[in-house]
C-alpha cells in the first residue's frame, strides 16, 4: 500500500511535469513542419505531411530575408555587449572587492538599484537622441551593457572574494602595476565565472525584446525577437511559418543550454543567492 502510494505519487508528479513542460515544445515542432491547412486547425496532432525545408525557405525569404538580417544584427549586438560586459564588470568587481572606502556603500546602493529598478524609458530615448545613438546598433549595445552591468558585477565580485589577497601582494612585490595585476594575474583566474557570465548574458541579451522595441525601432535594424513579434501579425493565417520562426529563434538558446547547462544553472542560482 505505502509502496503504491510512494511510487504512484512521484510517477504522477513526473508525468504531470513532463506533460506541462514538454508538450508545448513538441507542439511548436509539430506546427513548424505542418502544411498551412493542417496548422490552421491549431490542434496537437501528428503532421500528416512534413514540410520542413519548404517552411524553412519561406520563413527565411519573408520580407526580403529579414530573418537573416535580424540574425546578423542580434549576433553583433549580443557578442559586442557581452564582451564589453565581461571586461568592464570584471574590473569593477575587482576594484570593489579589493578596496573598501567611504564610497563603497554608495556603489553597493547603485548596483542594487540597477538590479531592481526599471529604466526610465522616454528620458533615455531623449538623451540617446541628443547623443546621436538612438536607433543605432552601438546605442543598443551600450544600453544592454548599462542594464546588465549590476548582475555581472555581483557575480564577479563574489568570485574575486575567493581569490586570496596574498596573490595580489606577491604580484605587487614582483613589481606589477594595476593593469598588469588585473590582466595577467586576476583575469586568468576568473575563467569559471567568466564562462557563467558569458553564457547567462548571451541568452538574456539574445532573448531581449523590450530594449530593442524601445531603442532600436525600424525595420533595417530589427533583432530576431522584433522580427518574430512582427511576423505574429503578418502570418496570422500561416501558423506553420510562424512556428517555424519560433523554432529557429529557440534553437540557439537550446544549443547554448546543451553545452553549458551546468554553468547556466550554477551561475543563475549563485548570483541570485549571494546577490
Amino acid at each position: 500500500m505505502s509502496w503504491v502510494k510512494k511510487y504512484g505519487l512521484s510517477a504522477a508528479a513526473i508525468a504531470i511535469s513532463l506533460v506541462v513542460f514538454v508538450v508545448p515544445f513538441i507542439f511548436i515542432i509539430f506546427m513548424a513542419v505542418k502544411d498551412q491547412q493542417q496548422s490552421a486547425q491549431m490542434d496537437f496532432s501528428w503532421p500528416t505531411s512534413f514540410h520542413v525545408v519548404e517552411n524553412f525557405v519561406q520563413v527565411i525569404q519573408a520580407r526580403d530575408f529579414m530573418l537573416i538580417t535580424a540574425y546578423i544584427n542580434s549576433t553583433v549586438i549580443t557578442v559586442t555587449s557581452v564582451a564589453l560586459l565581461v571586461v568592464l564588470s570584471a574590473l569593477v568587481g575587482f576594484v570593489l572587492q579589493r578596496r573598501v572606502t567611504w564610497w563603497t556603500p554608495w556603489v553597493d546602493f547603485f548596483i542594487l538599484a540597477g538590479l531592481m529598478m526599471p529604466p526610465a524609458v522616454v528620458p533615455t530615448i531623449t538623451l540617446m537622441q541628443q547623443l546621436g545613438i538612438f536607433k543605432t546598433i552601438h546605442g543598443l549595445v551600450l544600453i544592454e551593457v548599462a542594464y546588465n552591468m549590476s548582475f555581472s558585477v555581483i557575480l564577479f565580485r563574489n568570485f574575486i572574494a575567493t581569490i586570496p589577497r596574498e596573490l595580489d601582494e606577491a604580484a605587487i612585490i614582483d613589481g606589477a602595476r594595476p593593469l598588469s595585476l588585473f590582466f595577467r594575474v586576476i583575469l586568468p583566474m576568473l575563467k569559471p565565472v567568466t564562462v557563467t557570465v558569458i553564457v547567462v548574458q548571451t541568452v538574456a541579451i539574445f532573448n531581449d525584446f523590450v530594449n530593442p522595441l524601445y531603442y532600436l525601432p525600424g525595420r533595417e535594424n530589427a533583432t530576431v525577437q522584433l522580427t518574430l513579434y512582427n511576423f505574429q501579425s503578418q502570418f496570422v493565417t500561416e501558423y506553420n511559418l510562424l512556428f517555424m520562426n519560433i523554432l529557429l529563434i529557440t534553437i540557439p538558446p537550446l544549443v547554448v543550454f546543451l553545452f553549458f547547462n551546468r554553468q547556466i544553472v550554477a551561475g543563475m542560482s549563485a548570483g541570485a543567492i549571494k546577490g
Binding site: P24, F27, I28, V203, N207, F209, V224, Q225, L228, Y229, Q232, L242, F243, I246, I249, T250, P253, L254, V256, F257, I264
Partner: peptide
C-alpha cells in the same frame, strides 16, 4: 531560456 515572444505566441 526560451524567447519570451515565442512563449507568448505559442
Amino acid at each position: 531560456l526560451v524567447s519570451t515572444v515565442g512563449v507568448g505566441i505559442t
